[in-house]
Design a protein around this nucleic acid. Structure first.
Lengths: 220, 220, 220, 220
DNA sequence: GATGAATGAGATTTCATTCAT
DNA sequence: AATGAATGAAATCTCATTCAT
C-alpha cells in the first residue's frame, strides 16, 4: 500500500508535489480538517519528509498561500500593460484573473476562503495579496480621475471604498464562474466591465461599456 | 473555576446565551478551532448542557448560521418597501445590510466566512441566505430593466452575473466597513450606490447617483 | 414528548414498571450500554424517580437479578414434588425451567449472560441462583445413587461435576429453545432427559428414557 | 509513569502484546468497562499506537475473539483423529478443550461470556466458533447413529438438540474446572464422558463409560 | 410524588509531531 | 534522502447522578 519505495527526486520538485497536495486537500476539507497524513499520502511521500521540507502544518499552509498568491498576482500583472487606458487595463486584468481562477479552483479556494478563515496569521498573508490588487485598482481609478476634469472631487477615502467594491465584485464573479457550469471567464469579464464601468443605471439606459475589440467606439 | 454554580434559567434563554457564545467564539477562532469547552465556558454553563440543548457541534454551528441568517435577512426585508423605485429599494436594503453587519460583526463573519469554509453541509445553509439576497437583487434589476425601454436585451444569464457582482460588492464593502475604523454604514451605502448604479465610467464624467434625500433630482 | 404528567401510582407498581423496563433494556443492550435515560423513558417516569426508588444503577441491576432469579427458582420449585422418583422430579423441573425461560427471554438473558459478565458483585447474585439449582440437582443424583446399590461409589466431587454438566446442558438447551424458532419447551425437556438420563451411548443402542406419561414400554 | 520509553518492536509482536493485554483486561472487567487506557498501559504502549494497529475498540474486541476462537478450535482439531470411533474422538476432543481452557482462562471468558454479551456483532463472531463445535459434535452423533442399527430414528432436529446439550455440558464443566481449585482437565473429561455417553440412568446401574486406556472393554 | 435543569468525571478517538534507523 | 514506530495533548461526546422546585 502506498506504492513502495519512492523515487529519489530533486528537492524543488518534491516540494512542489507537497504543496500541490496540500492545496488540494485544504481546498477540499478546509485547513483544520485537512490532516498531514492525507497530504503526505496524496503527495506520495512519508510524513516525516513533509516535516523535513516544510517544517510544520502552519508553515506548510503559509507556503501554500504565498505560492498561490504569487501565481495569481503574476498572471494578472503579466496581462496588464500600463500604457493603455484605465478601462483597457481593467479589462485585461480581470480577464486574466477569471481565467486563472477558473483553471486553478483549488488555489482560488485556498486564497479566497481558507486563508481568511483560520486566524490572523494566515489572513495577513492573504490580505497582502488583496492589498496588492486593491492598490492596482485604486491606482487605476485615481489615474482615470486625474484625467477626468469633472471628477477631481473623488476623495481618497471614497476611492478606497470604490476599490473595495470593485474587488468584491470581481471575487464574487470568480466564484460564480467556478460554480455555474456554463459560465466562462470571458462572460464574467464582460459582465464585470459593464457593471463596474457603466453601472446599472446606465445599462438601463442602453449604454454599455464597449469591449476593446469592438469595431466602433461606444465612447467617443 | 468559571464562576461557581450557575443560576437556573428557562430553556429558551439559555439556548440564546449558548448561541451568542458560539457565534463569538467561532467568529474569533474559526469553526474547527473553536472548542466546545470554550463555548460552554463563555456561555457560563457546563459542556453537557450545551450538548443537551444543541445536540452536537455540527448542529450548534448550523443553529448559529440559521439564526444569524434569519436576523440579517429580516433586517433587510424590514427596511425595503416594494412600492418604491428600484434604486430606492436598493439604497434602503444596503443601508440596512451595512448597519446590521456593522452592529453584528461576529454574526457577519460566521455567515460570510465560517459558514462557507467548513464543508458543503454548512455552505448550503449560508447559500440559502445568499440565494435570497441574490433573488432580491435580481428581481430589482429585472424590474428596472422592464421599465427601461432601451434595455430589454439583458439576458437572464447576464442579470444573474450582474446580481452576483452586486452582492460581491456589498459583501466586500461590509468587510471594509468593519475593518476600516472610521468608515460608516452610510458612507458604505453611498459608495455602493455610486459604484453599482452609476458605474465608474459615469463617475469619471461627474455623474453621480443622487441619494434619495437629495433636494433636486440628479436624474431628469 | 413522553406523555405529559404521569399518573400517580402506588409505589410497588411503579417499581415493578421500572424493573420491567430495566430488564428489557439491559437484555437488549447489555448492562453497561444500557443508560438510565433509556430505562426511565421506557418505564414512563423521570430519571430522578428511578433514583428515588432504586437508588443507583448498580442497585437497580441487583434488584433485577434478584427478582428474575426468584421468579425462575419459584417456577421450578412449584413444579417439583419431592415424593416422586428422581427422574420424574428432574423431568418436571426442567419442563418448568424451559417453559419459564421461553416466556421470559429477557429475564433469562439477564440471569444467564448479563449477570455473569459485569463484575463479581453481580456474578455473585447470579451464582446464588445457580447454586440453588445445582443443589437441587445434586440432591437428586445423590438420592438416586443411594437407592441404587451398584453406584454408591459416586464420589461427592464426581456428583458435583455431573451436576455442573447437567445444569450446563439445561442452560444451553434453554438458549437453543429461545433461538430456534420452532423448538418447544416440551421438546427441549425430552431431549434433555434422553441426553442426561440415558446418555448418548444408550440412545445408540435404542434405549430411550421413557417420559412419565408413557403407558408401558418406552417405544414399541 | 508507565515505565518510560518503550522499546521499538516489529509490528506483529506489538500487536500480539496488545491482544494479550486486551484479552486479560476484558476478561477481568468486561468489555464495556474495560478502558483503552488500561489496555494500552498493560500492553506497555501508548493509546494512539493501539488505535494505529487495531483501529477501534470494537475492532480490537473482534480481533481478540477471532484469535482466541481460532486457537481453541485449533487445539481441539489437532487432538481429534477422524478414523477412531466416535466416543474416542469425543474423549480426545473434550480433553483438549478442557486443557486449553484451563490454561487460557481469560481467553475462555472472552469467548464464552464477553463475546456473547455485548451486541450481535460480537455474538456472531463467537457463534461462528460455537457452530463449528456443534457441527463437530453433530457429525459425531450422526455417524455413531448410522452405525447403530437400533437408532436410525434419531431425527435431525433431535440430534441438533442433543448437540446443544452436549456443548452446554462441556462449557459448564470448563467453567467448573476453572472455578474449582482442585479440579483437573482429566477429571472433567471423565465426568463429561460418563455423563454424556452413559447417562445418569446407566451410572445408577453401575454402567460406566470406559476410558480409552482401560484394559478390558466396558462394553461387551 | 414527581420533575426540569444542571454538572463532574471520564470515555473513545484524532492529530501534529518526533525519534531511531 | 527517506521512513516505520511511537507519543503528548487535546477534541467531541456520554453518563450516572443531584439540586431546587
Amino acid at each position: 500500500m502506498g506504492g513502495g519505495r519512492t523515487r529519489r527526486m530533486p528537492r524543488a520538485e518534491r516540494e512542489r508535489q507537497m504543496l500541490d497536495a496540500a492545496v488540494e486537500i485544504i481546498a477540499r476539507h478546509g485547513y483544520t480538517a485537512a490532516s498531514m497524513d492525507e497530504i503526505a499520502e496524496l503527495a506520495g511521500v512519508s510524513k516525516p519528509l513533509v516535516y523535513l521540507y516544510l517544517n510544520s502544518k502552519d508553515d506548510l499552509f503559509t507556503a501554500c498561500i504565498r505560492r498561490e498568491a504569487a501565481a495569481l498576482t503574476e498572471a494578472v500583472r503579466a496581462a496588464v500593460r500600463p500604457n493603455l487606458p484605465a478601462d483597457r487595463q481593467l479589462w485585461d486584468g480581470v480577464q486574466a484573473f477569471f481565467t486563472y481562477t477558473a483553471e486553478h479552483p483549488d488555489g482560488w479556494t485556498v486564497l479566497h476562503l481558507q486563508a481568511r478563515t483560520h486566524g490572523p496569521r494566515f489572513a495577513a498573508e492573504a490580505d497582502a495579496m488583496r492589498a496588492e490588487m486593491t492598490a492596482f485598482v485604486t491606482r487605476l481609478i485615481a489615474t482615470a480621475a486625474l484625467e477626468s476634469p469633472h471628477s477631481r472631487d473623488l476623495s481618497t477615502r471614497e476611492i478606497e471604498g470604490l476599490a473595495a467594491a470593485l474587488i468584491g465584485a470581481v471575487e464574487s464573479l470568480a466564484d460564480w464562474t467556478n460554480t455555474t457550469p456554463t459560465a466562462t471567464a470571458a462572460q464574467a469579464s464582460a459582465t464585470l466591465m459593464n457593471f463596474a464601468w457603466s453601472g446599472l443605471g446606465n445599462l438601463m439606459s442602453g449604454n454599455r461599456w464597449a469591449p476593446p475589440g469592438a469595431a466602433s467606439a461606444a465612447r467617443p
